[in-house]
């Protein structure tokens, strides 16, 4: 796997958070989080409801303002960047609850993903690529996003993110509310995307499945990192087993 646990000098992480504190409607949601993601990795962030997982992703993509600390992406400081700026750098954020535009058609939802792309040919190529992962979408192009099932919406949400041709794909609870068989499919696709070179930061409550596909994981508890390690090691960790895998 393309990473080392020893933090040697000169290693440039794709994404690095240093002591990030974020306040969310008056409450301190992140109490100084440090984590990193290397190019080519799947890193998962697990923890219980309200631990700060979503806030961490929102801090990275710029949906919420970071109070203090630093976030850097490919060596550039993006701490103060807003969402419409970070996404231009190659960070795609699939938000919790999928957040499909309900009254836009499937096609329009996909086109929104490529909003910053001017070249029509490139847009079409990207759409074809999204169909390769999610062939179902192709038959539903004119359907309104809000009329699709939860699983289809999740596929559309990921497809829409792929339209941005991201280097770093952040997924917030992609398995939420989905049937086990669909969850299986989604996780397969996440792994496949990773094999094609997309770095993935995965937030999950479904800790077991997340740790199964992740190279490394972080356990977050009340806004702070509690544990970190290889995915397989965390699965075996007694503390993790008790709290999240029981």
């Amino acid at each position: 796997m393309p990473f080392t646990l020893d933090k040697e000098e000169g290693i440039r992480y794709m994404l690095e958070l240093k002591n990030v504190e974020t306040f969310y409607s008056g409450i301190q949601a992140l109490k100084g989080i440090s984590l990193n993601v290397e190019k080519g990795e799947i890193v998962t962030l697990i923890g219980s409801n309200g631990a700060g997982k979503s806030t961490a992703l929102k801090s990275i993509s710029g949906l919420v303002k970071v109070g203090s600390g630093q976030i850097s992406y490919k060596g550039n400081d993006i701490t103060k960047k807003q969402a419409h700026e970070t996404t231009l750098l190659g960070i795609a954020h699939v938000p919790e609850g999928r957040r499909i535009f309900p009254k836009l058609t499937v096609k329009e939802n996909l086109l929104m993903g490529a909003f910053s792309v001017k070249d029509k040919r490139a847009i079409e190529e990207r759409m074809e690529r999204a169909f390769r992962y999610f062939p179902k979408l192709k038959d539903r192009l004119e359907q309104k996003g809000g009329t699709m099932s939860g699983g289809e919406q999740q596929m559309l949400a990921i497809g829409r993110a792929l339209m941005m041709q991201p280097e770093l794909l952040m997924l917030d609870e992609p398995s939420m509310g989905l049937a086990p068989i669909i969850v299986e499919q989604i996780f397969d696709i996440i792994r496949e995307l990773n094999q094609e070179g997309i770095t993935i930061l995965l937030v999950e409550q479904n800790a077991y499945q997340a740790l199964q596909i992740a190279h490394r994981g972080y356990v977050i508890q009340t806004g702070a990192i509690r544990l970190e390690g290889y995915g397989q090691d965390l699965i075996k960790n007694s503390e993790v087993r008790e709290a999240y895998l029981a």
């Binding site: 993509s61 949906l63 807003q82 969402a83 419409h84 996404t87 231009l88 795609a92 954020h93 938000p95 957040r99 535009f101 309900p102 009254k103 836009l104 329009e108 086109l111 929104m112 993903g113 909003f115 910053s116 829409r160 941005m164």
Partner: peptide, 22 residues
């Protein structure tokens, strides 16, 4: 395209910004 962005912002401002829409 900008009309579509307008509809997207009307439906979900936060997600629209995740699509690089200012």
């Amino acid at each position: 395209k900008w009309g579509m962005a307008m509809r997207a912002v009307a439906q979900d401002r936060e997600t629209a910004s995740l699509m690089s829409v200012n």
